[in-house]
């Protein structure tokens, strides 16, 4: 069953995005939300092709590395020292802090 509008809008929210704005006219053809929903559902629908693959007992492959690298020694590095540079990229800051709107 293809994804419906409610399911797709839930994904938009989880992705921390906003859906396109609905125009005021009631013409369904021009509804950008409906267009996004149908396009997204079509892509997800295509992915169902994987159901045709036989994967019983197959270990998932999350990395293509054929020779996993040994971890490096757990030694702290003191050469970072870039706090001011990094804070300098902040769109808004207060002193040595990133600034955000209130949370509640």
């Amino acid at each position: 069953m293809p994804l419906d509008e409610k399911a797709v809008l839930a994904v938009v929210g989880l992705a921390r995005l906003e859906p396109p704005e609905r125009p005021e006219s009631d013409s369904a053809a021009a509804d950008p939300v409906a267009a996004m929903v149908s396009e997204f559902a079509k892509i997800v629908d295509y992915m169902a092709i994987l159901n045709e693959a036989e994967t019983e007992g197959v270990e998932p492959m999350y990395s293509p590395m054929i020779e996993p690298q040994p971890p490096r020694p757990d030694e702290p590095r003191r050469d970072a020292g870039k706090a001011d540079d990094i804070l300098g990229q902040a769109p808004e800051r207060v002193g040595r802090y990133f600034s955000v709107p209130r949370i509640f």
């Binding site: 921390r16 995005l17 906003e18 990094i86 990229q89 902040a90 769109p91 808004e92 990133f98 955000v100 709107p101 209130r102 949370i103």
Partner: peptide, 18 residues
């Protein structure tokens, strides 16, 4: 928040992200 574009005028954090 930390770098890049920030939308203006948002009263709360979640809508700032979105």
């Amino acid at each position: 928040v930390r770098y890049g574009y920030r939308a203006g005028g948002d009263p709360e954090l979640l809508s700032l992200y979105r």
